[in-house]
């Protein structure tokens, strides 16, 4: 499923990221990449999400969140 449509307060594994190269790079640097485990903290207005990964909270805007496919742990 797409991250922006996943349920909050649950953990997911990232399966695929189809975002633009520069956004993929940003995500990678922040610890979000294929096969990593993330925790969906909150959905914010406009379709963006806050995820927790490797000890940090990351905001991912709507357009990028729609390009991340995840599956529940």
């Amino acid at each position: 499923m797409i991250l922006s449509r996943a349920k909050t307060k649950r953990s997911y594994i990232v399966n695929k990221i189809t975002a633009l190269e520069k956004d993929k790079r940003k995500l990678y640097k922040l610890g979000v990449f294929k096969k990593v485990k993330i925790y969906l903290v909150e959905k914010i207005a406009g379709g963006g999400v806050i995820v927790s990964v490797s000890g940090s909270d990351i905001i991912i805007g709507k357009k990028v969140a729609e390009k991340i496919e995840v599956s529940q742990c």
């Binding site: 956004d23 909270d57 905001i59």
Partner: peptide
């Protein structure tokens, strides 16, 4: 810009 960033505790 797409906002992708770490946010502080």
């Amino acid at each position: 810009e797409n906002y992708v960033s770490e946010i502080a505790d």
